[in-house]
Structures are given as structure tokens and as C-alpha cells.
Simulated assay, not measured.
Amino acid sequence: MVEPDQPSTARMIDFWLGGTHHHPVDVAAARAFEQAYGPCAPVFRALRAFLGRAVRAIAATGVDGFLVFGAGVPTMGNVHEVAPDATVLYTDVDPVTIRLGQRILAGSDRAGYGFGDATDIGTVDPALLHRFVPGWGRRPVGVVFLGLAAFLDDDTLARTLDELYTAVAPGSHLAIDFDTEELAAYPQALAMMGPAFRMRPPAAFGPLLGRWQPTRDGIVPVTRWRPEGRPEEVPDAFHGAVAVRSVG
């Protein structure tokens, strides 16, 4: 495999999570961001722990098929690892990340990886969707939408979530996170996120969900969404929720 010459956010997160699917260029970029902000590993481990708790909660409702957007590297507690009885289709828009994911999942009959743009559900390969998320549109599924809201403007995000709501069957669940204004105090780190990055105050999160109804847990800091024991003390960088397409 050719050593990449550009860092990847997906592989940087893998580094922060303690994974093995990253390269020196990713470590260098991760260290540079830490110089501008501070330790990132606890923040991303808290977000990954939220993913695990959310997916297990969704699976406990009887959902056994998941569609994951912006999936990144499919390891270190990603969906198929925390819901081993489910089938999972991971998607991303970065071809390098997709190829890495396909190598990692080669031979799996319960998880696949393909192209998918969250803002256009039609970009997901219907054959992969049928194979790994059987019953799409006819029976409840889980949709994972983490790490994406911060890179979509309000109108695009609201439209995207509404289109997903229409596409899934009643009883389906959405796991989502939002970036708070945490980085406002770190202008150098904020500049590294690029012009598309959008921070939002917590009061703005709920209206963006549109017809999706959050569970009674609400939209809360990710460490406080159904914590297992005492919530971790990490910067309040992400809020998360599980929301439902109502039945009837």
C-alpha cells in the first residue's frame, strides 16, 4: 500500500481512538491540532462511547440493520463491533477511506463499505443497501449520522434529515451529534477545521431535527446520554441524541 502524503480526518480519529489504521502524516496532523486545542483522544473516545451506547439502545428496540454515513475507519468500537448480531452498511465520500474500509471488512458477511453522500440518499448503491440493510424503507432501521452536521449549513442539514425521515420506515432511529461552540476559544484550531465547519449553540440543535423526535433522553452532551456509571469529564465539544421516526 502506498504511504499517503495527505492526512485523513478518519485516520486521525483512528489514531486518537488508539487504532492501528493510520500513518505518520495522520499522526503529525493530529499532533498539530492538539498543539492548537489540547488533548483530543478523550473527546473522541467519549464520542465513540456515545456511538456504542446509542447503537446498543437502537438494537435493543429490535433494529438489526444499520446505515452509517461518514463512517470513517470501521474499527475501535464502530457499529458492527458493538451490535454483532446486526448487519451494517458503512458509507463515506472519501475514496481512500472507502478502500481502507473495504480492506478491513473483506470477507465479512455482516458488514460492507461503499460510497454514500448523506445529502443524497440516491448515491448509496442499491445492491449494497439491499444486502446489508434489508427491508430498507419497509422495516425499522438505524441510521448513524455522526461527524457530519458540523459540515452542513442549516438548510442542507434540515433537508437531508427530512429526506432520511421520509426514506426510512416508521420506527426507525437516527443517532446524531452536533458540534458546540467549544472551538470558539481556540481560533488556531478553529481555522484548521476549514471554512465549511459550523459550530452551533445547543438551543439550535433541536429545530434542525425537524420531524425526527428525540428520545426522552433529549439532546445532551455525549457523555451524559445514558452514561454507564459516572459521566466522563471531557470538554463539552459534542452533543448527541437518538431520534425516532414515529409509528403512525
Rank of each mutant, 00 (worst) to 15 (best):
E232A: 13
Q102A: 15
V88A: 12
G142P: 05
G62I: 05
S246T: 01
P74A: 13
L183S: 11
R45I: 03
M76C: 15
P84R: 01
P39S: 12
I58W: 00
P24W: 06
A204N: 03
V141F: 00
A237L: 12
H22V: 03
L128C: 06
A30I: 12
T97N: 02
L208K: 06
L128T: 03
T156L: 14
R99V: 15
M1D: 00
H80K: 13
F69P: 13
I98N: 10
G72Q: 09
G240L: 07
G248K: 01
G137S: 12
G114I: 06
D154S: 14
L146D: 06
R11I: 08
R139H: 09
R103S: 15
V82H: 06
M192Q: 15
L174W: 00
M193D: 04
A86S: 15
F238Y: 14
V222K: 13
E228P: 04
L89F: 08
P195I: 05
V168C: 10
R99Y: 02
Q188I: 12
G248W: 00
V247D: 00
A32P: 03
P221H: 13
G52N: 02
T223N: 09
A203N: 01
H130F: 03
R200H: 07
P195A: 12
Q102E: 14
P214I: 02
I104C: 09
P202M: 06
V244D: 00
F69R: 10
V55W: 07
R45L: 04
G112N: 08
A150F: 08
Q102S: 14
D179L: 05
A241L: 05
V244R: 00
G194R: 05
G206K: 01
E34P: 11
P201T: 08
T91R: 04
A203E: 15
Y186C: 11
Y165D: 01
D5Q: 08
F44N: 06
L148C: 08
D117Y: 08
H80V: 10
A237N: 10
T123P: 03
P221E: 06
G72L: 04
D94K: 10
N78C: 05
Q102D: 11
F69A: 02
P214H: 01
R224S: 04
D26I: 05
G62M: 01
V133Q: 08
A28F: 10
G52F: 07
M199T: 02
W16Y: 15
V25I: 14
A241G: 11
A158E: 13
V168N: 02
D94T: 06
A29C: 03
A203C: 07
S172Q: 05
Y37G: 14
D117L: 00
T166E: 11
V27H: 05
S108L: 10
R99D: 13
T160A: 06
E228N: 10
F178T: 12
V82D: 04
A237D: 07
V96A: 12
T166Q: 07
M193R: 15
Q35D: 13
D179E: 12
P4I: 09
A241N: 03
T75D: 09
V144S: 06
V73Y: 13
G19D: 08
A184F: 11
T215I: 04
F238E: 09
A204R: 14
P207L: 14
A10H: 00
T166D: 01
L128V: 03
V141W: 02
Y37F: 15
A158P: 01
H173C: 07
P7E: 01
Y186N: 13
L67F: 03
G114T: 15
A59Q: 06
